[in-house]
Computed example of a mutant assay.
Amino acid sequence: MAAVQKSGEGSNPRGIPLAPFVDNVGDYVSSRSEVEGTLKSFQEMISKYQFMEMNTQRRTVGLKEKIPDIQKTLEMVKFLKMRRDKDDDDDSDEEEEGLLETNFELNDTLYARATISKKDTDEVYLWLGANVMLAYPIDEAQTMLTEKLRAAELSLSNCEEDLEFLREQITTLEVATARVYNWDVVQRRKDKAEGKGDDEDKGDSAG
């Protein structure tokens, strides 16, 4: 049994177990009576890996859509903060110096023009999801968005790594399935050649 790696004897950093690697079928299946159960077990594991793969793919798609939105929001917060800090450094007495004209996107095809004064950039409102919006001081908003972006990028990297790992495990199990099946075919031919399969064949014919 030393040449066989059993499922559960290892995992990736997210705890996804390694699939069993069948190097020598004779060490893994001791008789033909164990073949059916072994193949069924492999198929169940393949189904579980495929289910995890589907969920990970869905999460990957969501992160790839989410990350650009976070990046765009963070860039805007940095821009507003830079303008505010620049105006503070200029120490201008003219209120017009701190005005910013911009267009707000109301939907995909509709924009509204607005003028933002320096005092309006001390805090920003951020969507947190589930129809929740909170006001943050602009410095806190930048910190929060930076951390959120870093976490999302790490999650995406982990998902992509998990997808590759899952595909490797599925391939390993498909190879293991083929090896056990081929071993069973060879053993069946051997048994038939040695006359061990005669009674079984007669029984099948009678049925």
Score class of each variant (00 low, 15 high):
P137H: 03
E123R: 04
S117A: 02
T146Q: 10
A135Y: 08
V132L: 09
K148S: 09
L145M: 07
K119G: 11
Q142A: 12
T146V: 01
L126R: 04
T146K: 12
N131T: 12
K118C: 06
T146R: 08
Y125E: 15
I116Q: 08
I138L: 07
Y125K: 15
A135E: 13
I116G: 04
I138K: 00
I138R: 03
K148Q: 14
M144D: 08
E123A: 08
N131R: 10
I116H: 01
Y136D: 02
L134D: 02
K148F: 03
V132T: 14
I116F: 07
M133S: 13
Y136R: 07
K118P: 00
L145Y: 04
D122A: 10
L128A: 03
G129Y: 07
S117T: 10
Q142F: 11
E140F: 04
A141N: 01
D139I: 09
T146W: 00
I116D: 05
G129N: 03
D139L: 02
T115N: 08
M144S: 13
Y136K: 03
A130Q: 14
L134T: 04
M144L: 13
T143Y: 10
T143Q: 11
A135V: 15
D122M: 10
M133Q: 03
W127Q: 10
D139E: 15
T143A: 07
E123S: 07
T143D: 11
I116A: 09
I138D: 02
T143L: 11
E147N: 14
L126N: 08
K148D: 07
S117E: 09
W127K: 14
A130L: 15
N131L: 14
D122V: 09
N131D: 13
Y125H: 10
L126D: 06
I116S: 09
W127R: 14
D139A: 05
E140N: 04
S117W: 01
N131C: 10
A135I: 10
K119M: 06
E147P: 01
T146N: 12
D120S: 08
A135S: 10
D122C: 00
T115P: 04
W127C: 14
M133V: 12
I116T: 00
P137N: 12
V124D: 01
D122T: 11
K119N: 14
K148E: 02
W127E: 15
S117G: 11
T121Y: 00
T115D: 05
T143E: 15
T143K: 15
L145H: 01
Y136S: 04
E147F: 05
E140Q: 09
I116E: 02
K119R: 11
V124L: 04
M133N: 04
N131A: 10
A141R: 05
K119V: 14
L126V: 13
T115K: 04
Y125R: 13
A135W: 09
V132K: 07
A130K: 15
W127D: 14
D122E: 15
K148G: 06
L128E: 11
T146C: 05
K118N: 13
T143W: 08
Q142M: 14
